[in-house]
């Protein structure tokens, strides 16, 4: 299956889901003629039409071509699992932040990303992560006055 065909099917699914969700929007006595559901309904129809067009075009193109070119450039260097792995490091950071706090969390994030991206396992990673976390803490917490999470594990200590 070509990328466009898969994209078309996914867009169709998004359109259907969005339309179904828009059914849950409450009515209001203050509502105008179009209403709060007006635009969502139009958008779901427009997306469905575009999805169908994309699917039709993908089918026509695949029929017209006897051989499908493989290894087409997708404009990205990383493979999907690798890129998702990168993002998961961020998700873990968001999950642990309330427990271990900003400084420890940021140090862990920098170290984890550096190691994931191929940095050699030595003291430099620890030093860079620790230094970076302290630098960002000084910038965000001390300079900008942002209340970054302290961490439930360390709350009793402060």
């Amino acid at each position: 299956m070509s990328k466009d065909l898969i994209s078309g099917v996914v867009l169709l699914a998004i359109s259907g889901t969005y339309y179904a969700w828009s059914g849950g929007i409450a009515d209001s006595t203050l509502s105008d003629e179009v209403g709060a559901t007006g635009l969502p309904h139009v958008l779901s129809f427009v997306l469905a039409i575009l999805a169908v067009l994309l699917i039709v075009r993908a089918i026509l193109v695949s029929r017209a071509r006897t051989a499908i070119a493989t290894g087409a450039d997708d404009g990205s260097d990383a493979s999907l699992p690798r890129a998702i792995g990168f993002l998961l490091l961020g998700a873990v950071y968001v999950f642990v932040l309330p427990f271990i706090g900003y400084v420890a969390g940021t140090a862990l994030l920098i170290a984890a990303v550096a190691l994931y991206e191929g940095a050699p396992r030595n003291w430099v990673v620890l030093a860079a992560a620790g230094g970076g976390a302290v630098l960002y803490w000084a910038l965000f917490v001390k300079l900008l006055g942002v209340h970054q999470p302290v961490g439930s594990l360390f709350q009793g200590l402060l």
Binding site: F86, L89, G90, Y93, V94, Y102, T106, L109, I110, A111, A112, V113, A114, L115, Y116, E117, G118, A119, A128, A129, G132, A133, Y136, F140, L144, V146, Q148
Partner: peptide, 18 residues
Amino acid sequence: RAYRAGFIFALILSGIFT
């Protein structure tokens, strides 16, 4: 690049939290 990615990622997430 490995360290650069770590620092930029941490900067982005710290910035969004603000």
